[in-house]
């Protein structure tokens, strides 16, 4: 499903400030797998997720998703690819604080050709699924940690993508919330989503995962 071949990412390539983030990485993630990318911060995990999401281009090598090269798409196609394939859950969730829950959930739908009525319908469906519809018109800044987490997941799933990428999702979460999040991930996994989580949180070790990849100083090792 997701395939990285000889991928290197060097920031400021060709300048004296060049920084190697990933070097010659090969990685394969199968359909419906739950994969952990473990490693200390700054090891290149986030870059790896960005490459899969086509948010950045590799300096060398190619990234394929469903046998299509996504590592060198023009902006228009990269965005369409993300809409169709990728749900992104960010570190600290990165919700837009002053917008309401509904507005946050609708963000991925705004640039799509979907009508306002259809978009809102989808928004309500997904909020109900994660039991936050009663807060639909509440500003995100007034939500509790658990609610935020559910909004972030609802937002990443509103377009029903087959792949979920999560970047340090449990950083700054207390153990109850972290536990809840892990349960949610397991549920999504059972529903057949392909999930890639970048984390250095040891609590993830209790999770039922298909594979763990260790990321260290730009290199990836399977265990």
């Amino acid at each position: 499903m997701i395939e990285l071949k000889n991928v290197s990412k060097i920031y400021n390539y060709g300048t004296p400030k060049a920084v190697v983030a990933l070097e010659d990485v090969n990685l394969y993630i199968g359909k419906g797998e739950l994969v952990l990318l473990m490693g200390p911060s700054g090891s290149g995990k986030s870059t790896l997720l960005s490459l899969i999401a086509a948010l950045t281009r590799p300096t060398k090598g190619i990234v394929k998703v469903e046998n299509k090269i996504v590592s060198k798409l023009p902006d228009h196609f990269a965005a369409l690819y993300r809409r169709e394939w990728i749900g992104f859950i960010f570190q600290r969730f990165n919700l837009i604080e002053e917008l309401s829950v509904l507005e946050n959930v609708l963000l991925p739908l705004v640039p799509t050709p979907l009508s306002i009525a259809r978009s809102e319908e989808r928004g309500w469906e997904i909020m109900e699924r994660f039991a936050i519809e009663h807060k639909a018109h509440t500003q995100v800044s007034k939500l509790s940690g658990g609610e935020r987490q559910r909004v972030a997941i609802a937002r990443s799933l509103v377009l029903d993508p087959p792949i979920i990428l999560a970047d340090e999702p449990t950083a700054n979460l207390d153990s109850t919330l972290a536990q809840q999040f892990l349960l949610l991930l397991e549920k999504l996994h059972e529903q057949g989503k392909t999930i890639v989580v970048a984390t250095h949180d040891p609590r993830f070790e209790s999770l039922h995962v298909d594979r763990i990849a260790k990321v260290e100083e730009g290199h990836v090792f399977y265990t």
């Binding site: 400021n12 390539y13 060709g14 281009r57 300096t59 060398k60 023009p74 902006d75």
Partner: peptide, 10 residues
């Protein structure tokens, strides 16, 4: 080409 100039041009 994969140069940063190409990205800037895009």
């Amino acid at each position: 080409s994969d140069t940063s100039r190409q990205y800037a041009l895009e």
